[in-house]
Amino acid sequence: MTLLAVDGLRRSFGSLVAVDGVSFEIEAGEIVGMIGPNGAGKTTTFNCILSVIDSDAGTVSFDGADVTGGPPHALARRGLVRTFQQTRELETLTVADNMLLAAPEHPGERAWHAVGRTSTSAQREAAARERAMELLEVFDIAGMVEEYAGNLSGGQRKLLELARSLMLDPKLLLLDEPFAGVNPSLTNEIVGHIEALNDDGMTLLIIEHELETLTDLVDRLIVLADGQVLATGPPAAIMENEEVIDAYLGG
């Protein structure tokens, strides 16, 4: 089943066409890597898919529905969740609050429940807290739970951002350079988490420059260059592809 279908996506900044007619599909259950030289338009593609920025043309459909230009919060609720290239923790919130914030369908986030202090809200909060602690244990940052996210190290931030996305139970998780600035042992750890998530049925699309790690991890690669899809296919074939090699050496 096709989970995500991107068709003819375009976005320009002034005269620069950052994303120039990008089309691809992601099947449910896949891990797909997206690679390309700096400035190829990978992050911009993510931004357009999630309509964090407006795209000039093209359509995005997710899980059978057209979600082009849909508000980001609605996409998150449908199960399309992303991380950011520069980790964006909510630094002025604690680790616990970062996690709990992501809990979907929380009645306590409605004014009436908040003022009435309803028991449904309290129950949801307790359940969310339990789930948050579970995830934090898995990601080995449970010790920091009451710390402000601003006080975490770079690696811990990456882990928190990943853990936070998982609070939403995504169907498709888009990761923007999850291994950038992460030491090798932590990289291995994150790879382990990603594989475990995929085994549990989650689909992932991963932007990454660290090719060695990525090619071992993914089923398929999409190569972007100058805002266009240059090639797509299994990692082994892509690594042999002349055009791709040129794009990397030339770029």
């Binding site: 919060h73 998150a76 609720r77 992303r82 939403l168």
Partner: peptide, 9 residues
Amino acid sequence: QVTETLGKR
């Protein structure tokens, strides 16, 4: 922006 991508209106 992050709050929005975490599903909040």
